[in-house]
Design a protein around this nucleic acid. Sequence first.
DNA 1: GTCTATATGGGGATAGAC
DNA 2: GTCTATCCCCATATAGAC
Lengths: 227, 227
Amino acid sequence: MTSTKDSILNSAEKLFAERGYEATSLRAITTAAGVNLAAVNYHFQSKNQLLRALFTRGMQRLNRQRMALLDSYEAEYREKSVPPEKLVRALIEPMLDVTGNHSKGSKVFGMLLGRMYASPQGPLADILVSDIEKFSERFKSALRRTLPEIPLEDLFWRSFFAIGATAHTLISSQLIGIISHGVCNPDDREAVIEKLTAFIVAGLKAPAGSGIKREKAGQTGKNRRGR
Amino acid sequence: MTSTKDSILNSAEKLFAERGYEATSLRAITTAAGVNLAAVNYHFQSKNQLLRALFTRGMQRLNRQRMALLDSYEAEYREKSVPPEKLVRALIEPMLDVTGNHSKGSKVFGMLLGRMYASPQGPLADILVSDIEKFSERFKSALRRTLPEIPLEDLFWRSFFAIGATAHTLISSQLIGIISHGVCNPDDREAVIEKLTAFIVAGLKAPAGSGIKREKAGQTGKNRRGR
DNA sequence: GTCTATATGGGGATAGAC
DNA sequence: GTCTATCCCCATATAGAC
């Protein structure tokens, strides 16, 4: 039996994820949770604080999983640098909840997280930024060891792009079924994570100057390969 | 002198882009535009229709630019396949408005577009999907010619990820200045577009099977392979 | 802790004078 | 086409009985 407080958290998580924060009313949440409207202001103080509580809960769980994965990889590779595939997986896998062995909220939270990434002006930009900073500190040093030939600036940018690709996947993966006319199946999460990881890793490893000329006529001719 | 109707469109575009659709009131729009509240319902019929008008206007302009770029590249390379760098640039450059030679609304619209991509449930999912479909038809065939060794399914997925990276850049590029502690400058749009293009192109070109093993170390257990 | 009832405000939309 | 005034609904939040 789940408590009133948890029912609210779970329903709110689901609805915020599906419809967004502004478009979700407390009434919708309490109705879905089967609790009284006033309960939300009793347990939390406001809609905003509800979101913060919710988000904090999710981020802690998520980052615990990611840190554990990173730890295990670093232990596994000892002094050698962890291959980028592993690093990327450590970040992404918990968000997509591939194994499904955590409390089922995870996938929903991933979608919410994607929304938050996509709304930097939103009601909890501060939490998100501080969290990214804290986490990226750890991730950045691992990446630098793994890809020492990539300039720091590019590592930042590419990590940023990777976040974007991931957030998009979390939010709108259902779209790809439509766009691809069924060729791609967004519900095969194992396939999704593999493809996303491959994409990101390739992007991270791209040759530094990138060989991309922006004046005239391409000339990709001189592309030294990135691996 | 801009008409009342255009003032509304411009202010709405700006505010929707900055704060999102739900979080923006018609009162905020009309105040910013310096027009009367009732005008918005006179010229458009509802808040929703205002958004649609706005979005349609922007998409037409954007796609005209993209098509023109694609055309010029295809003409340039004649029967040979257009290099992926060019294809990607044709998509991205108009969104980021690098040259700055179009009416200044473009950059703002890019941000709005990013938001729409990130809200598939939003009030104009239908427009967005139909537009993506229409456009991706053209882009897909160009991509297939350029990267014939990549399976169609992967091309779809990777284009999807590319959209995500781009949308994220459009919406929250300001974040990277903070996260990178000033190492990255989000306002150097020429640099942004180069780095984003390099990232996407590398992701598109990634080796097909991708060589990414997922067993070990995470104990993902009974992993059937996804291919 | 949970409920009913209500306060208070803001939202989109419209009627109708000018 | 533009304005004022207003309708009406729904939102968050709270007061206070149980």
